[in-house]
Amino acid sequence: MADTNTTDRLPPAVRTEALESLLTERGLVKSEVLDGFINRFVNDVGPMNGAKVVAKAWTDPDYRQHLLADGTGAIKELGFAGPQGEHIVVVENSDDVHNVVVCTLCSCYPWPVLGLPPEWYKDPAYRSRMVREPRTLLSEMGLDLDDDVEVRVWDSSAENRYLVLPQRPEGTDDLGEDELAALVTRDAMVGVAKVSAG
């Protein structure tokens, strides 16, 4: 509740326990159902899904084309779908264009391919600055871009979710799909890093 008392706040861990106690007592939730829900996001849904999508796009030109034309469909082909993935648009980085994704109004994020957003994505500094000074912020986060690269910032303000298809690093021609997937990071698929050959 909107409680503006800033000195006598109850610890959120206790309030969480209290809410769970009230809801289970009323038969509205079961603790095992909460466990299952949590475990799904800890173990099954995460950036390893997006990494498989990227690695396939790097090695299969037809799939890449399909992915860029119909992100949701191509991603579903690999078995990834669900909440916060109703319509996924894949945007491709190149030598000339660098894409980066933010949600200034909350923290919208493509859960089926990246899992839950990391703390930095939800940080007010990221949400406020990425739309206003993306080059400076990317540089502070460790990614320096040449002046002639166009920076394209996507503010996910409706129900479309964006996944960045990073550039395949040099020197990876002899790697297979699984080895490539192991190189792909969450940060590269949001657009705050590049993929390196390891």
């Binding site: 969480t16 909460l34 949590i38 800890v42 990391p118 502070e140 705050v192």
Partner: peptide
């Protein structure tokens, strides 16, 4: 500024996961 913690777990504390699910 924004700092990336490369070792961030999905839920840093137990209550984070419970609050997310509820």
């Amino acid at each position: 500024t924004v700092a990336i913690d490369p070792d961030e777990p999905v839920f840093r504390e137990r209550w984070h996961g419970r609050a997310f699910a509820m």
